[in-house]
Amino acid sequence: MLEIKNLHASVEDKEILKGINLKVNAGEVHAIMGPNGSGKSTLAEVIAGQEEFEVGEGNILLEGEDLEELSPEERAHKGVFLSFQYPVEIPGVSVTNFMKTAINESRKAQGLEDMPASEMLKKIREKSEMLEIDRKFLSRSLNEGFSGGEKKRNEIFQMAMMEPKLAILDETDSGLDIDALRIVANGVNKLRSKDNAIIVITHYQRLLEYIIPDFVHVLYNGKIVKSGTKELALELEEKGYDWLKEEAAV
């Protein structure tokens, strides 16, 4: 599904990603952990095509296709989805309207007609129920006045609506209380399939108790310094990151 080879990225001449290698197969969930400032969010945004970052060396391949020349929206059309750490507000645009636009733009790119209204409404109903979202919430302006938890739940709702091939969840657990975390995690688990892949970026092991990853990677100082299975996350929880920093420094 996703293959990242020796990826380097910088912003304003400061190199943040310093040679990332990562392979994610369809049907897998990968967790990326690491201390603050290690480059986790940068990696997520670079995959999504944020133009603020300068990609130097390396490639990002989605199903074998190099994404380098593709705009963020083209990547989205190909099935890349990013659940933002800090979702932005768009006043006056309802969640429903935003989703309708997003879905139809992607359909248009694939040469499809707009989704019929009845189908759209059915989908909205289904996915909002899955994430236990109040219908009134869907007519509110996107993220405007949402609590931290509502914003994150809304991101996962969008993921459910868009059915991406590759979903990157950037600190989706931050700002969620334990009940919301469970609902969101359940939602993500329902969206897991053999045809898609999910990358979960998180600081904490907590989320990984609910969304069980196949692989865990530790990102430190722009590089993946350790990879393992879900046990690695537990080890990190217990020992912190310092031992890895020391290892990396060697």
């Binding site: 963020p72 929206e73 989205a76 768009i90 006043p91 006056g92 636009t101 997003a102 733009e105 992607s106």
Partner: peptide
């Protein structure tokens, strides 16, 4: 950041602006 958010959801910049403007004018 608003534009990038929209882009990430598959909405190109032109359309994103239209959406934001429509929201503003709602």
């Amino acid at each position: 950041d608003q534009i990038f958010y929209c882009n990430q959801r598959g909405i190109d910049t032109e359309k994103a602006i239209a959406l934001i403007v429509n929201g503003f004018s709602k």
